[in-house]
């Protein structure tokens, strides 16, 4: 019976990957990285890693005389032979374990939003009003105040609604005044308001988001918005509203604010945009769940 250092090392790497992903899951940090809808896939990843670890463990001690199945597969990096290429390969593999270990995760902020072209995204969404067919509002099928069967902080777990709930939420939007942009409704309301801004002009709106500033805007204008995450934060897209108020210059970029104001239509580089004339505002802490998720509709 002989001890194989390289196999022990590989078993350790697999185990550390298991713990790293498992730790993300239990500490809730996973939701700083991916849309919670996909957390089951991550469970699957951990499950497979555990299997691979258990299989790998069998190879740490091998019987030299009965060279079993395992031996044939030790290609390239055989026991003991440690050349530069192998070292480099393992350094790369250990790299994420190392950085995951020593570097805490952060939330995407205004500089990321800037990289992703905030103004491009805003004008693109607003342009949809000009070339799309009239926005479709379903007839309300439920009672006045739309309610979800699911708990209110649903966004922390999933943004799944039934088709009825979805249609009801949209139907409610037309009558709502003030419009309250909850985490759950934010993305569909955002789309509706952009597509049909004339209809919403003059209505009151309440929302929160973080501040983004752009030199091409007037001195008293900022963008207030949030990131929408489809799968992981690498695919985050920024959705937000232009906001105008005289105190805007004193807001610092990345500050989270809750604002209430009136929707107006303004022009930015020749494109009509919905804008919020802010009436009341306060600086708030970053919410526990800073990201938004697209609404998934269950088909029944």
């Amino acid at each position: 019976m002989r001890f194989s250092f390289i196999h022990a090392f590989r078993a350790m790497i697999l185990l550390l990957f298991v713990l790293l992903v498992g730790d993300l899951y239990y500490s809730g940090e996973l939701f700083m990285l991916i849309n919670p809808d996909y957390q089951n896939l991550n469970g699957l990843a951990v499950f497979i890693l555990i299997i691979l670890f258990l299989v790998q463990l069998q190879r740490v001690w091998f019987q030299s005389e009965v060279c079993g199945h395992a031996c044939e597969h030790d290609h390239a990096h055989d026991q003991g032979t440690f050349n530069i290429k192998t070292c480099l390969a393992y350094l790369i593999i250990v790299f994420p374990i190392f950085t995951g270990f020593i570097l805490p995760f952060t939330t995407l902020d205004a500089s990321t939003a800037a990289n992703r072209g905030v103004m491009l995204s805003l004008t693109s969404h607003a342009l949809s009003a000009q070339n799309a067919e009239p926005f479709y509002y379903p007839n309300a099928t439920m009672d006045d105040n739309h309610q979800y069967d699911t708990p209110e902080d649903i966004n922390l777990y999933s943004n799944m609604v039934t088709k009825d709930e979805y249609e009801n939420a949209l139907a409610q939007l037309v009558e709502q005044d003030p419009i309250i942009m909850t985490d759950q409704d934010y993305s569909i309301y955002y789309e509706a308001i952009n597509k049909d801004m004339e209809n919403f002009s003059g209505k009151k709106i309440t929302l929160n988001g973080f501040v983004y500033k752009n030199p091409s805007l007037d001195y008293n204008q900022v963008v207030i918005g949030r990131f929408l995450i489809t799968h992981c934060i690498a695919d985050a897209s920024y959705i937000g509203f232009l906001a105008e108020l005289n105190q805007a210059p004193q807001w610092s970029e990345d500050a989270w604010v809750a604002v209430t104001g009136v929707i107006k239509i303004t022009e930015y580089e020749g494109v009509k945009l919905p804008m919020i004339q802010v009436e009341e505002w306060e600086v708030i802490n970053e919410p526990d769940q800073p990201y938004l998720y697209p609404m998934h509709i269950t088909i029944r």
Binding site: L41, N42, T99, I102, L103, L108, D109, S111, C232, A234
Partner: peptide, 29 residues
Amino acid sequence: QLMFQLPASIYKMNTIFFSILIEAFPFVL
């Protein structure tokens, strides 16, 4: 993690790196 402080962009890059890794892991496995 508390022992040192690096430029913010390094932390952001690490976060994005991890999010793609975590996203890709189930499929690769």
